[in-house]
């Protein structure tokens, strides 16, 4: 317990932790502010204005079409006729359906539709922060010799590293839950004053909760991976280097899969796995294939990656790397 308390104090006292948490707060505040100022509450006046705007545009389009038809008819038998269709009746004539008033409505934040994306944004911002703080928390300890000092006091390698990781993930969870609650509350308010909270059933809130839990899993996995990679390399730079190298490899694999004509090259691109995890599923299409049916003709094949599949992949990678860091902690000499 004393070790956990010491590690907790150490994490909170670190300057990088404070800087990154402040950075996270600023980024999240910027997203909320941006959404606030780009959204507008929609009422009867806005609907009427949008309908008027749509009608104005429709009338303008009709006038333009009529003028074009006149020019077309006037050009018949002259050299300019080649610029017009042979039958002037073939010229496009707009219809009222082409001018849906909803397209002229101001941007408004519909909580039910848009909050899941905001949960994904929240999760990705916190995941990046967790990766950095996790890597630095243990990497700086290794690099500065602090880990060796600590092991002179507590010569229980796995307990020391495990406690550090547990304390770190515990704090990340607390931060994610507190900020997540604030995030939800702020967007609820935003929808109330600058958007819409229509159709918010308990089922929708439940769905938001599950999306949030998947987001939390991504945040914790990112933190654990940053921590474990830095511990493996005994330096913060190891985690950052591994991330960059993995990113380059992943882009390379994606390009190679595309060039090799593999059926679903998107599956080689890890960010799509994260999208699947955060948005329940990701559907990728093989545009070169043809699933023929007599009713629909040739349809391209699709593959749906579910959040369950993506979760298993992320969990496997996390367990593998954290396990490797624990194993090397137990086996390798500390010099």
């Amino acid at each position: 317990m004393s070790l956990a308390r010491a590690e907790s104090r150490r994490l909170v006292k670190r300057r990088l932790t404070k800087v990154i948490v402040i950075g996270v707060l600023l980024v999240l505040a910027a997203v909320v502010a941006g959404s606030w100022f780009s959204s507008e509450k929609v009422g009867a006046a806005q609907v009427a204005a949008a309908k008027a705007e749509a009608d104005r545009n429709y009338q303008e389009a009709l006038r333009s079409a009529a003028a074009d038809k006149e020019k077309c008819l006037a050009a018949q038998g002259t050299p300019e006729a080649s610029q017009w269709p042979a039958d002037c009746n073939q010229l496009f004539t707009p219809t009222i359906e082409d001018y849906n008033y909803e397209w002229y409505m101001p941007a408004t934040f519909v909580l039910r539709e848009e909050f899941p994306l905001m949960v994904a944004v929240f999760a990705l911002v916190l995941a990046a922060a967790a990766f950095l703080v996790g890597a630095s928390f243990v990497g700086a300890e290794w690099n500065s010799g602090g880990m060796m000092n600590l092991l002179l006091w507590r010569p229980q390698r796995l307990r020391v590293l495990g406690t550090k990781l547990a304390v770190f993930l515990g704090w990340v969870t607390v931060l994610a839950l507190v900020l997540g609650a604030a995030w939800t509350g702020l967007f609820r308010l935003l929808a109330e004053y600058r958007g819409s909270t229509e159709n918010m059933t308990s089922g929708v809130w439940q769905s938001f909760g599950l999306t949030g839990l998947r987001g939390l899993a991504v945040i914790l996995a990112a933190g654990a991976l940053g921590f474990a990679l830095a511990s493996l390399g005994r330096h913060t730079g190891m985690a950052l280097g591994a991330l960059v190298a993995f990113g380059a490899l992943d882009i390379g694999a994606y390009i190679m899969a595309s060039l090799a004509g593999l059926s679903f090259p998107d599956l080689w691109f890890v960010p799509y796995w994260l999208i699947a995890l955060l948005t329940k599923e990701f559907v990728t299409t093989d545009w070169t294939s043809c699933d023929y049916s007599s009713t629909a003709g040739c349809e391209p094949a699709t593959f749906t990656m579910t959040w369950q599949t993506a979760s298993i992949g992320l969990a496997a990678v996390t367990v593998l790397i954290v396990g490797a860091s624990m194993l090397t902690m137990r086996k390798r000499d500390i010099t």
Binding site: S2, L3, A6, R9, K13, S144, G146, N149, L150, R154
Partner: peptide, 27 residues
């Protein structure tokens, strides 16, 4: 057992007081 091994190594951004109090907590 109290020990120092080779050159002294500490996390540079902490004060001496913090460094020792963290070790005291851990131990």
């Amino acid at each position: 057992v109290g020990a120092i091994v080779e050159s002294p190594q500490f996390f540079g951004n902490f004060t001496a007081e913090t460094t020792l109090s963290l070790l005291a907590d851990a131990g």
